[in-house]
């Protein structure tokens, strides 16, 4: 395994870690490779001595879990019954900002869906017209129009897939954050 393959495998195995952490980890392992290379070792040799990337990723993830446990413990150590201010904050924040924001995002996704449906319908109509021969006079412009519309459709599909993915992810962590504030109040961090 060479350097690129090793780093790729390690990144894949790190999976759902926050982006900043993954970047940091990859940077330190990349630095390790660079040091070894400047000593005249081969990339394969360095990769071999670093150990299985899957196992290494596991050790990094165990460390991160440990960090979370420490944080939780610190929180519950400081816990002095439900924090009234934290609960009021959650209610007010959701009423005026939180829920509206998520609904707005949802509306944007639905709008993109409708736009995509309209786009596909127009493509269908034009293609049907071309096949039936009714649009024969303007065949070249219509073909260009269809191609453009197909590009728009592909763009929208990619946008929607990413949008829905991050919407779900974001909503999940937003709910987790709310729960934390609800239960433990507004911490220092």
């Amino acid at each position: 395994m060479n350097k690129t393959e090793y780093l790729k495998k390690l990144t894949d195995e790190l999976g759902h870690m926050p982006y900043g952490d993954v970047k940091d980890i990859i940077q330190s392992i990349e630095e390790h490779f660079e040091e070894g290379i400047s000593e005249g070792r081969s990339e394969e040799e360095i990769a071999e001595s670093l150990g299985d990337p899957k196992e290494l990723a596991m050790e990094f993830k165990d460390g991160a879990k440990f960090k979370q446990i420490i944080k939780k413990r610190k929180m519950s150590d400081n816990f002095k019954g439900p924090d009234g201010r934290g609960r009021i904050f959650v209610i007010v924040f959701n009423a005026f900002v939180g829920i509206e924001m998520w609904l707005l995002f949802l509306a944007a996704i639905i709008a993109a869906f409708m736009f995509l449906a309209g786009d596909c319908a127009i493509i269908g109509l034009i293609v049907a017209g071309l096949v039936a021969g009714t649009l024969m006079e303007y065949i070249i412009p219509f073909i260009f129009l269809v191609l453009t519309l197909i590009c728009v459709a592909v763009f929208l599909i990619v946008l929607l897939i990413l949008g829905i993915k991050y919407y779900a992810k974001g909503l999940k962590s937003y709910i987790r954050w709310n729960k934390n504030v609800w239960n433990y109040g507004l911490g220092e961090d």
């Binding site: 980890i25 630095e31 390790h32 670093l50 150990g51 050790e59």
Partner: peptide, 30 residues
């Protein structure tokens, strides 16, 4: 630095060179 520590550790104890990095991360977060 990491590479030096990895070498020093792996020379004395039977562990992979990579092992030192998760440990350093954890120690830094503590």
């Amino acid at each position: 630095y990491g590479y030096d520590l990895a070498g020093n550790l792996a020379r004395k104890v039977e562990v992979a060179d990579g092992t030192v990095y998760p440990i350093l991360r954890k120690l830094a977060s503590e």
